Simulated assay, not measured.
Amino acid sequence: MTFSLYDASVPMIVRGLNVLAGLIDKAAASGLDEESLMQGRLAPDMLPFVSQVRIATDLAKGAVARLADVEPMVLADDETTLAQLRARIVRTIAYVESVGPAQFAGAETRAVQLKFPGMELNFEGAGYLTSFALPNFYFHVTTVYALLRHAGVALGKRDYMGQLALA
C-alpha cells in the first residue's frame, strides 16, 4: 500500500479540526467569559484567539484546495461567538472531507505559489504540505490550546491529542 499526499493531509487535517472543535466545546462549557476568551492573547503583539481559529481553518481548507487544485471554500471571518467558531470548523471539516483521493493525483509535484506582502513562496506540493501547511496548521491549533489553557479552561494533553489511530 502506498502512502499518498492525500493520506498525509486530509485525515491529519480532519483530525486536527476535530481537536479544535473539542477545544471549543471545552471552552464553551467552562463558564468563562466568552468575549474574554475570543479576544485572548498570550502576548500583546499576537493575534487573538478568534483569529487563531480562523487561521487554522483557512490553512486547512487552503492546503486541501491547493493540493487538489480545486476552488477553496470561502468563509466570511465574521464569527463573534464560540458557537460560530465551532460552526466554522464543522463547515471546514465538511469541505475537506468532500475532496477525494483522486483529486490529489499529481499533488506531490503540483506547483503551489503563496503571495504575501513583500514575499512570494514557491513550492512543489509535497514540500508545501510538509514544510508550510501542516506546521502552520498545527501551530495555530496549538496556540488555541495554549490560549484556552492560559485562560483557565480545564484542558490536558489528551484534549490536544484527539482520537489516536491505534490500528
Results as ranks from 00 to 15, higher is better:
E108M: 06
R41T: 01
Y95E: 07
A76I: 03
Q163E: 11
N18A: 06
F139W: 07
P48K: 05
L17W: 03
A8Q: 13
A56D: 11
Q39V: 09
E124F: 04
S98T: 06
P135L: 09
T109N: 14
Y95A: 11
L37D: 02
T142S: 15
L166N: 07
K26L: 00
Q113V: 15
P48C: 06
A165Q: 13
D159I: 04
I13P: 02
E124H: 08
A8R: 10
S4P: 09
E108W: 06
T130F: 11
E34M: 00
A43R: 08
I13R: 03
L114R: 05
Y160P: 01
S98H: 09
Q39W: 07
V144T: 02
A28R: 01
M12L: 15
F104S: 04
A83M: 08
L37R: 00
Q84A: 14
E71R: 08
L37K: 01
S36M: 05
V99P: 06
S98G: 15
A8M: 14
T80M: 12
Q39D: 14
Q163H: 09
Y145E: 01
L147R: 02
K61H: 12
G156C: 02
G40F: 00
T92Q: 10
L17S: 00
S36H: 03
A21I: 01
F123P: 05
L59H: 15
F116H: 11
L47I: 10
G22N: 04
L166D: 07
V50N: 04
G106F: 08
G106Y: 09
V144A: 04
F116L: 14
T81Q: 11
K115R: 15
G127Y: 04
F104M: 07
F104H: 05
M119R: 14
V70C: 13
L114G: 06
R88I: 05
K61R: 15
M1G: 15
P101D: 08
A167S: 14
I89Y: 07
V19P: 01
T81Y: 11
V74E: 10
K157D: 06
D7N: 12
G22M: 01
P135R: 08
T80R: 15
V141F: 04
M12N: 14
S4E: 11
S30K: 00
D7H: 10
E108P: 04
G16C: 03
K61E: 12
R41Q: 07
Q39N: 15
L164C: 08
L164G: 11
G106P: 07
A63D: 14
N122A: 12
V50L: 05
S36L: 05
H140F: 04
